[in-house]
Nucleic acid binder design. Structure first.
Length: 288
DNA sequence: AATTCGTGGGT
DNA sequence: TACCCAAGAAT
């Protein structure tokens, strides 16, 4: 509680003017933004989000088109399975929720691609309900300011949600601001690489700072696998080819994308298994 | 619980 | 240059 007030005040003066924070942006827009923001930097989401919502202003609009259109429109945002799940989400919302994005966390959690973070983000930011919202930024701020650790360890949903819940003001509207404010603080001040403690509104109560910025001691997070030469890269190459082609892509064209036949076939098979690619005779297309 | 899943920019 | 990191979810 000693951090909610100063962080809220800081937020009201320093928050970025992001599209999904504009009044009347709508629950659908916020849901789409949260899908796009999963593991993807804010700056890369702005334009695709605007194009997406112009094309599909409601869940029913998206549900009405073939899922392949969603995969194509996803473009280079990364993790294209999110496009499949967002489309599936639109179908469920249209068929089971009357075309209205649900506002209860437990209803939101039933939607494809909606997990603990996204469900609460929608309930809080779109509907104003009072829940803790915990993303990577929030986890880092709490690890530093409260726990005195340089970085958060592995995620632990219950512990992380409880820690954030303990910081929230009682009032729904204030709690909503605090959720956005701590996330924003982690995004632009208490950053992973070079935190700007001189600009931090809670530097005077930060446990990490008070302890002299000790290095992180805890379970090492698994190193991210190298991308170059990975199956992910091959999947990306194949899907990029399909995205930019209006007609089915032949095996010969796919062979030109990657020399290792075994890896190419493995990547292709996994894309088919995911539903991102379908066989069309002896050729391949995005799903219809 | 540990892995897998894109892409691009920062350090 | 090689990492590291990014409003996570599913398995």
């Amino acid at each position: 509680m000693t951090i909610a007030a100063p962080v809220n005040e800081w937020f009201l003066r320093n928050r970025r003017d992001l599209p999904w924070r504009r009044a009347g942006f709508g629950a659908w827009g916020i849901l789409v933004s949260e899908f796009m923001l999963q593991q993807t930097p804010v700056v890369r989401v702005i334009e695709p989000l605007a194009a997406w919502l112009e094309r599909w202003p409601t869940p029913a609009d998206l549900a009405a088109v073939p899922v392949g259109e969603a995969v194509r429109a996803w473009g280079r945002l990364g993790y294209p399975r999110r496009a499949l799940r967002l489309h599936a989400c639109a179908v469920v919302i249209t068929e089971e929720f009357g075309g209205v994005v649900p506002e209860r966390v437990d209803d939101l959690l039933t939607l494809p691609g909606v997990g603990e973070y996204t469900a609460r983000a929608v309930a809080v930011f779109a509907y104003g309900h009072r829940h803790p919202v915990v993303d990577t930024n929030v986890r880092r701020v709490i690890a530093r300011a409260i726990d005195g650790q340089a970085d958060a360890g592995p995620a632990s949903t219950n512990r992380d949600l409880a820690a954030m819940a303990a910081l929230l003001p009682q009032d729904d509207a204030d709690a909503r601001v605090t959720n956005a404010a701590i996330m924003e603080l982690g995004a632009i001040v208490c950053t992973a690489r070079s935190p700007k403690c001189a600009e931090c509104p809670i530097a005077d109560v930060c446990a990490w700072r008070a302890d002299g910025y000790p290095e992180y001691r805890g379970p090492a997070r698994a190193a991210q696998a190298r991308y170059e030469g990975s199956d992910r890269q091959v999947r990306g190459l194949i899907l990029a080819e399909l995205r930019t082609s209006d007609i089915p892509v032949t095996r010969d064209e796919l062979e030109a994308l990657w020399p290792d036949a075994a890896q190419r076939e493995r990547a292709l098979a996994s894309l088919v298994a995911d539903g991102l690619v379908v066989a069309s005779g002896s050729d391949f297309t995005l799903p219809q």
